[in-house]
Write a protein that binds this DNA or RNA. Structure first.
Lengths: 306, 306
DNA sequence: CTGAAAGCGCTTACAG
DNA sequence: CTGAAAGCGCTTACAG
């Protein structure tokens, strides 16, 4: 029957049915960019899972202030999507209020907010674990490299930095902000500059925890170029579980990016079909330490004087 | 006026308007995956450009036979999208015919087909140029590594391999199929095996042209692990212009992935609003050789006997 | 130039 | 259980 209808009319018009049911069969996804490994992997999990649930995926990559205004003005509008998935995107209070006024069901992905559904990892705990791993290898001077977010659109919890600090404090190591550097995520000389600062400290670090694998990759290159052997002189630990971490032998805190997308699809289905039950549902996924060749024991201190 | 309407009703219902205009304001994008660098970059160009033209982007990542059947059965249906962008996806003749029957306007991205709009690069010419660059460095034994497409969903023209062969022939070098290897794109031991085969030839290659940067990256790792210095003993040339090619100092044939997406958006707008003029429009974008540290002069032949 | 009516293609509630 | 009618929220062509 349905098949016959398909063959005759070739397709049911979603427009007509959504007009009467009030359902569009579509979910909007808001992302701060599309060319990062993490978002690609998350969308690769999300898209097929939504499709399997009979939902189509509308993707909005919002990277400029203009696009941002346009999006909140025009696109997420009531009746154009059944739910909005906010992926690693820092909503302003006004934007958040506007979405609530619209009655748009919200799901947060890779970030969390009170009173709304969300799926994410426990960044604090994972960063603590990563730092403890470096401590267990004998490192006492551990630097932390965080990305400087130029646009300010990406959601950031500072949670990883907090976890790093907590673990150091618990090991009885005094906080030293000289060891925390901000670097541009994709390019620019700031990474070399940061390395220069770290390597010229009176007590330079013997390990570096990078907030993302992308930073860790660039770090590996800079250290190789600067003849700093990894891990003999400097251990590097990343965060993400990037597909290239394995070929590059990078130790990393691997988060299940694809799985985040799949769970997000379940939550989207939930907030649409059973809003009461799902409005505040939070799913926390595990992060796994994957030790590889970029981390090793702390070098024994160079003899200063004899 | 429009603003007042927005404030009152919060949004115009696309469903209602599309019912009467026959336009959905949506473009469907079909991709064989979502977690490759190239597709991420292309979508990063495409999405915002579509949005700027007032079009929403529906993304369908089709990676299994089941999803594929489902997609062609249900999703691209008439009146659910104004056009379909096919990105690096190998349509079967039946699928192609079905889309034509639906009267769905088509745009091919990073691939081309007779009689339909498309935007892509000249792979043959670019591969010729890359190969000639290696020849000019003095290399005579140049291997070629191509990805084995497990699913068979990705569009492949063999054009790069053709360009490689043409350039060698023009240089008067006999074709040697021992130098052409297939390797799995993301993982598996096949890359090591391929290297083993190449390095044990009577006359091993002094340079390798990798069909994608992803393969080139893994190649660099394997060679480093095998103590084959790059580029002193082996030059590596990639293809794509991956964001990590620069930090990894990989020479590559850089294609404008983001720009491909932007032009695709223009073509989509074109085939929707002026089908006659755009139906067969083809846009060919340039590929640039970016020489970096992974390529160098051919080593002088090792003395065999004296 | 303005305003009321018809109709896009479905779903649903209701009459038979 | 089956089938005709009403109506979802817009746009457009037409009457005034």
């Amino acid at each position: 029957m349905e098949k016959a209808a398909r063959e005759l009319s070739f397709a049911i018009s979603r427009s007509a049915s959504s007009l009467v049911t009030g359902r569009t069969g579509r979910v909007a996804v808001l992302v701060p960019n599309l060319d990062s490994w993490f978002l690609g992997a998350a969308l690769a999990g999300l898209g097929p899972a939504l499709n399997a649930a009979g939902l189509d995926m509308l993707v909005y990559s919002v990277t400029t202030a203009e696009q941002r205004a346009e999006f909140f003005d025009r696109l997420p509008a009531r009746r154009n999507a059944d739910a909005l998935l906010v992926v690693s995107f820092a909503l302003s209070p006004e934007e958040r209020a506007r979405l609530d006024d619209l009655g748009m069901p919200l799901v947060f992905v890779s970030q969390h907010e009170q009173g709304r559904a969300g799926v994410y990892v426990d960044d604090v705990e994972a960063a603590e674990r990563g730092t403890r791993y470096l401590l267990n290898l004998g490192h006492r001077r551990i630097a932390y490299l965080e990305p400087a977010d130029a646009s300010g659109f990406a959601w950031s919890s500072r949670a990883r930095l907090d976890g790093y600090r907590t673990a150091l404090a618990q090991a009885g190591i005094d906080r030293d902000d000289d060891l925390v550097c901000q670097v541009a995520h994709w390019q620019g000389p700031s990474l070399e500059a940061a390395m220069g600062r770290l390597l010229s400290l009176a007590e330079p670090p013997t390990a570096i925890f990078a907030e993302t694998d992308d930073i860790a990759f660039r770090l590996l290159t800079v250290l190789r170029g600067g003849n700093v052997p990894v891990p003999q002189r400097m251990s590097i630990l990343g965060f993400d579980g990037h597909a290239m971490a394995e070929p590059w032998d990078l130790s990393t805190m691997a988060q299940p990016a694809r799985r985040l997308g799949e769970v997000a699809a379940e939550l989207a289905h939930g907030v649409i079909n059973d809003p009461e039950a799902y409005r505040e549902r939070h799913v926390v996924l595990p992060v796994e330490l994957v030790p590889r060749g970029s981390t090793g024991p702390a070098p024994s201190p160079a003899p200063r004087e004899r």
